[in-house]
Design a protein around this nucleic acid. Sequence first.
RNA 1: GGCUUGGUAGCUCAGUUGGUAGAGCAGAGGAUUGAAAAUCCUUGUGUCGGCGGUUCAAUUCCGUCCCGAGCCA
Length: 295
Amino acid sequence: MKKKCIFVLGPTASGKSAWALLQAEKYKGSIINIDSVQLYKGLIIGSAAPTEEEKRKIPHYLYSYVEAPKEMTAGDYLKDFYQLLESNIRFPLFIVGGTGFYIQALEKGMFNIEPVPIEFRKSIEEELAARGAEGLYAELKEKDPDTKIHINDHYRLVRAIEIIRYTGTTPTELNKKSSENKNEFPFEYIKVGFDFDKSDFEERVKRRTKKIIEAGIIEETTKFYNLNLADWAPLQSVGYKETVEFLRSSKSKEWLFEAINQSTMQLIKKQKTWFKRDKSVLWSNQEQSLAQFLA
RNA sequence: GGCUUGGUAGCUCAGUUGGUAGAGCAGAGGAUUGAAAAUCCUUGUGUCGGCGGUUCAAUUCCGUCCCGAGCCA
């Protein structure tokens, strides 16, 4: 039988994990995480990562395994993913999560350049801080006239300059090459999506936020906060960044609830925008689609 | 009751030496190739508390009333 994969995607709080768990049991498959926060060890409550009990039922991979202060990148994720596939894991694979960027990276690959040394980026960032973005942006425009990067998007600006200076080629060029090479995902796959209307999400998110706070996101965050890890990238994510602020400035628990609630709704909106443009996602009759695909 | 002060966009507030107003946040839409739950872009008509008066013209000045805050009784 061919090895098959099912991407289970959608905004946060859309019920994809629960569905995937059921289906993985039914088809005796396994579950792989594709959520950029659930990767980290110790960030369980705030990211609504699966519980130990859930993980016992079905093999789960790439959950809670990255230890602070390590920070993951999409490239690291790809590496870990393919390394995992070298071991003997059960198919069908349910790849579950809401990080569109990672899903895209798996599906279409990423251009293959060697990691740029940190000093490289550091010097560019210093240049940016000292002299502003104009110079760097002019350099980018000169080398890569078709760039879509905005001058205010400093993160992408620095990354583009780093690529240009280190590799001598441009992001646009690399992009073209990688789409010609088509490093496609090596298995047969479908993508099923889960989604709700905004008003339904409002209800779900309120419940989720309440649960997260009651389950102890404050305690969870405090552990990292006390280790001076407030700047650790994953702690900038929804739920944790609000809790860090809560710990820093004596805000009320009501404030925390509202803040997490709002950020979660914003996250959902952004995730919807990401998934909307992927026309191959099956948004309805997920179970039939799955049965058909696995038949 | 008197004095002071405030009432401007859903929220917090700028501002207009008189020519009907603008930021941040929120909301809406979008981008997204190693931070992605991050980062960035686009998007602002609202009886400028009510009613009167002065004026060619009032959100701006004057009067009065309503609501909030503070102080004094």
